[in-house]
């Protein structure tokens, strides 16, 4: 018995040491959306820890106090049906906790689904991010450039990623900046985020999409507004324009490095929104309505 407990505690110490080295990506947010999410995670961990401690405390007390080996042979456990007060507590306590977490949850959902807090008055930078097996294509309609597997964004500016897919459902994820959102073939979804400071971040597709899924990653580089403008100019000076032929070649299944083009594929292969949506029987206004509703 002692050996088992020793082994168990060893394991938990190991786990703690291993994680103590550096902060986990999700809990080390670098933007307001990811920060909201990290806060929700900490709040729920704390709340749940309270429950776990209560359950463990009751369990250990009961096991220590009422084990058969500690009781006399003629001890006959009583027949107890229930007690309204006790049962009221065990119903009421979870309800209170769920009400609290429900409020936290609803508030934070509205927060992450809107322009990041404090950035409401700024014009967002719109970037179309589309996935194909097994790459990410980023189109900047405003700057008129397109990149593959690398996205550059300016700091302190709200970004709107418009997501869709040329193939299986994928999930766009930059853990340190914002949680995931699906990219699908017949509609466009929107992910809001903003980055607090310059740096390099990991981004990937998190939704299983076939053979090349594991390597379906991209680099996120956050630059100051000045550097970002310079980067855009550089692309315009050095890169080739993207053509339909070239783009179709990019779509073929496989992996590619980072690529940079001028122009965007949106001109000849528009995103599935408005009149181009998969739900192609009506006009754009009807499509807006469609997006508002959940899909089931």
């Amino acid at each position: 018995m002692k050996l088992k407990w020793a082994l168990l505690s060893l394991v938990f110490t190991m786990a703690l040491v291993l994680t103590g080295c550096e902060p986990l990506l999700v809990l080390n947010p670098q933007g307001p959306q990811a920060e909201t999410q990290a806060n929700v995670i900490w709040i729920s961990i704390a709340t749940m820890a309270i429950i776990l401690i209560i359950v463990l405390a009751i369990l250990i007390t009961v096991l220590v106090k009422y084990r058969a080996s500690k009781q006399s042979d003629d001890y006959e456990p009583p027949h107890i049906k229930g007690n309204p007060i006790v049962e009221g507590i065990i119903v009421g306590f979870p309800i209170l906790i769920i009400i609290f977490l429900g409020i936290v949850s609803v508030n934070s959902v509205y927060k992450v689904e809107a322009t990041p807090e404090g950035y409401e008055d700024q014009e967002p930078l719109v970037i179309y991010a589309s996935s194909s097996n097994w790459k990410w294509h980023f189109s900047y309609p405003e700057e008129d450039i397109e990149t593959v597997n690398a996205v550059f964004i300016p700091e302190d500016r709200p970004i709107e990623f418009k997501l869709y897919s040329y193939g299986p459902i994928t999930s766009f994820w930059i853990p340190q900046l914002a949680g995931q959102k699906y990219a699908m073939a017949d509609m466009v979804t929107t992910l809001h985020l903003a980055a607090d400071q310059p740096g390099d971040y990991m981004g990937r597709n998190a939704n299983f999409s076939g053979e090349g899924f594991a390597e379906n990653i991209f680099d996120v580089t956050v630059l100051t507004q000045k550097d970002f403008d310079k980067w855009v100019d550089d692309i315009h000076n050095t890169a080739e324009p993207i053509t339909e032929k070239e783009f179709n070649k990019l779509l073929e299944p496989g992996h590619l490095g980072k690529l940079f083009y001028t122009g965007t594929h949106l001109d000849f292969s528009p995103a599935p929104e408005g009149e181009h949506a998969g739900h192609n029987h009506g006009d754009a206004s009807e499509h807006e309505d469609h997006l508002e509703h959940s899909h089931h």
Binding site: V26, Q37, V40, S44, V112, A178, Q180
Partner: peptide, 13 residues
């Protein structure tokens, strides 16, 4: 924790 929709964006998948 997973049921908290906003945080689920980080746990999902």
């Amino acid at each position: 924790m997973l049921g908290m929709a906003s945080a689920d964006y980080q746990y999902h998948n």
